[in-house]
Design a protein around this nucleic acid. Structure first.
Length: 265
DNA sequence: AATACGTCCAACCGCCTCGCG
DNA sequence: GCGCGAGGCGGTTGGACGTAT
């Protein structure tokens, strides 16, 4: 919902890091009155910031329900998978990672995951060059390699697996993608089959987008999110490409599955 | 101890889309 | 239909911090 334009103010907007006092003012204001029009927030809250800055601070740092700290293996898998399907659509990815912001996901991708993918791809290239051309694609190999952390990875950072404590020896035996953990119909559609709309504690609409809407190109759903996805999946090639990826994933695990099965497994 | 270098992440910037007048 | 402003998004930057030399 757009707001009516405000009268232009000549106030000089403060930039840079937020002080605890500013955080408190913003938090108090939004908790009491909601954000409504972001451009009005700094004026009403007594902040020398612009509306955009307030919005970003709230979304990325102050909003209740945010997870802080290291990403779990589960979360990283989700990011890698979604990145394979969506590309750099950070805000869409964040809808599948409750408590994580698009900025956080983006930063994590650039800090860790991109390097890991690049590394595994270079390993794959070496494999190919040495004539060891085994069945699966580079995509799948990169996914596979991403699951097994090498010693330098674990040495360079503390890896917190909050969702699953999986012994290193078992990692390579895991399914390559743990979809079942994050794609259940209940999670996305709720118990009554209606689209699940969690809504965080401040009342904003934090909607989990069903992954079928991320993949489908049929345009048959009236979801508001779908409209923004159509541009990503409006041609047959892209749809086929996604089907191919899913084929690769599940053939790798000894299965044969189409998109529909994938969505409702 | 001082400096250089690398990494991470919060925040800014610029662009695009949408709604309103 | 057009222009303007708000909201939203992805890319980029700058500074704090940690590590190596």
């Amino acid at each position: 919902m757009r707001c009516k334009p405000l009268e232009k103010t000549k106030l000089k907007h403060k930039k840079g890091l937020w002080s605890p006092d500013e955080d408190q003012k913003l938090r108090d204001y939004i908790m009491n009155y909601g954000h409504g029009c972001w451009s009005a927030v700094p004026i009403n809250a007594g902040l020398e910031r612009n509306g955009k800055s307030c919005r970003l601070r709230w979304i990325n740092y102050l909003r209740p329900g945010l997870k802080r700290g290291a990403f779990s293996m589960h979360e990283e898998e989700t990011i890698l998978t979604l990145h394979g399907l969506l590309g750099n659509k950070w805000s869409l990815m964040s809808q599948h990672l409750p408590g994580r912001t698009d900025n956080e996901i983006k930063n994590h991708w650039h800090s860790y995951l991109k390097k890991r993918v690049a590394k595994s791809e270079s390993l794959e290239a070496q494999h190919t060059n040495t004539g060891n051309n085994e069945s699966s694609s580079s995509y799948m190999n990169s996914m596979s390699t991403n699951l097994s952390f090498d010693s330098s990875d674990t040495a360079n950072r503390s890896y917190v697996d909050m969702d699953q404590q999986i012994p290193q020896t078992q990692i390579n035996k895991l399914p390559k993608i743990l979809f079942a953990d994050w794609l259940s119909l209940e999670e996305f559609h709720g118990h009554n089959g209606l689209p699940f709309n969690s809504g965080d504690s401040n009342g904003s609409n934090y909607q989990y987008t069903p992954v079928n809407e991320l993949i489908s190109n049929d345009g048959s759903t009236d979801s508001t999110e779908t409209a923004s996805h159509e541009s990503n999946y409006q041609n047959e090639d892209m749809f086929q490409n996604n089907q191919m990826k899913i084929d690769q994933i599940f053939n790798f695990n000894g299965g044969d599955i189409n998109i529909e099965d994938f969505l409702y497994m």
